[in-house]
Design a protein around this nucleic acid. Structure first.
Length: 366
DNA sequence: ATGTAC
């Protein structure tokens, strides 16, 4: 069967290609693409986009539904931010829970948990409800304050839907597979039956929760910077882009697992690494790439491998001048654990235009 | 990525 598939990755692991081919072998898979940062995941590689007919596959969206980026331009002076970077860094850790931490009390939110299915509602209650709103999480989630080529200060966040999205993903992956082996295979839900509709409803709610989460953090971070610098955020220019979601387009269900939505003219944010910062991009709406781009640089070293093979001294050396946690515990996030972001950006010149390159001043991690 | 089990 000739299905439309395009691979933008230059060096691809065999196991990632096998996962992609296996997914594309499903009868409901219509069209697929692998972004330049693609690497092995479970079920579907990270950096894959697959369009399906009449079916949604929870494992193709993954655990962190709504994981994505926000970028907010501001009028803070870069000299002020640099001069107060240590204070701002500490203030953010005071205001934003990181890692497994959440707020002591629930945070006000316009979202209504009654809009979730019974299953989604239970995941929400079990996973700390609105206490999780405005919390960063762990792994590769981060907060970055940086300046672009014109000296403008941006606040950039990578975070997701925290526990609630994870709970929703887990429960629907279990229902779809019909077994406890939820990470194997490509189990779909019909979009027109109750379970499929339930997944789409709850996934959509989790996307909104993830955005509300990033916005709440943005408010706290802008507050932290404002304690030391004059200026304000340009909220009308906030960019929000998911890289783990499924959306309907032209009668297809497009699954993005670690791939940024990049319609023509759509603004996006592609993070590189702790040292090289992030790119503000504008989508080209390339249909071969299923209207997508990469969601980052992509790993070259697994987390364990990075901690084994890299040296903390080298990490500290390369991060000089940036206020960040640079230590043994964050060594798996070293720039050396990722592909060269500049090369990845070159490989997707037909997918996005680069508008700005934001280089880090402060980086906050879980 | 998350939070559970060791």
């Amino acid at each position: 069967m000739d299905k439309h598939m395009k691979i933008y990755a230059e060096h691809l692991e065999d196991s990632a290609l096998e996962q992609f081919n296996s997914a594309m072998g499903q009868e409901f898979a219509i069209k697929g693409a692998l972004m330049p940062d693609a690497h092995t995941g479970y079920s579907l590689p990270i950096g894959a986009v697959v369009a399906s007919d009449g079916v949604v596959v929870p494992a193709w969206v993954g655990y962190d539904i709504g994981c994505g980026m926000c970028a907010l331009p501001t009028s803070f002076e870069s000299n002020d931010v640099t001069a107060s970077s240590e204070e701002i860094f500490k203030e953010i850790y005071k205001k934003v829970p990181v890692g497994f931490n959440v707020n002591q009390h629930p945070v006000d939110c316009h979202l209504n948990p009654d809009d979730l299915s019974q299953l989604g509602r239970k995941a929400f209650e079990d996973r700390k409800g609105f206490r999780a709103l405005g919390s960063l999480g762990g792994g590769n989630h981060f907060i970055e304050i940086g300046k672009d080529e014109e000296g403008k200060i941006w606040v950039i966040i990578h975070s997701g839907s925290r526990g609630v999205g994870h709970g929703i993903a887990t429960e629907y992956m279990r229902l779809a597979s019909g077994t406890q082996k939820i990470l194997e295979g490509h189990h779909g839900l019909r979009v027109d039956d109750d379970t499929g509709r339930g997944y789409i409803n709850d996934m959509s709610w989790a996307l909104e929760f993830a955005l509300a989460n990033r916005k709440e953090m943005m408010r706290r971070i802008v507050g932290a910077i404002s304690a030391y610098c004059d200026g304000e955020a340009d909220w009308d220019k906030l960019i929000n882009r998911n890289h783990n979601h499924a959306e309907e387009k032209d009668g297809m269900w497009i699954h993005r697992k670690g791939a940024t939505h990049a319609e023509e003219g759509m603004m996006g944010v592609i993070p590189g690494n702790m040292r090289d910062g992030s790119f503000i991009v504008e989508g080209k709406g390339n249909p071969d790439a299923l209207w997508s781009s990469s969601h980052g640089a992509g790993r070259v070293l697994g987390r364990k491998q990075a901690k084994r093979e890299l040296k903390t001294e080298d990490f500290q050396e390369t991060m000089r001048g940036i206020t960040a946690r640079v230590e043994d515990s964050t060594l798996d996030e070293s720039p050396m654990a990722y592909k060269d972001i500049f090369e990845v950006m070159r490989l997707q010149a037909d997918l996005v235009d680069v508008c700005q390159h934001v280089t880090p001043i402060v980086n906050v991690k879980g």
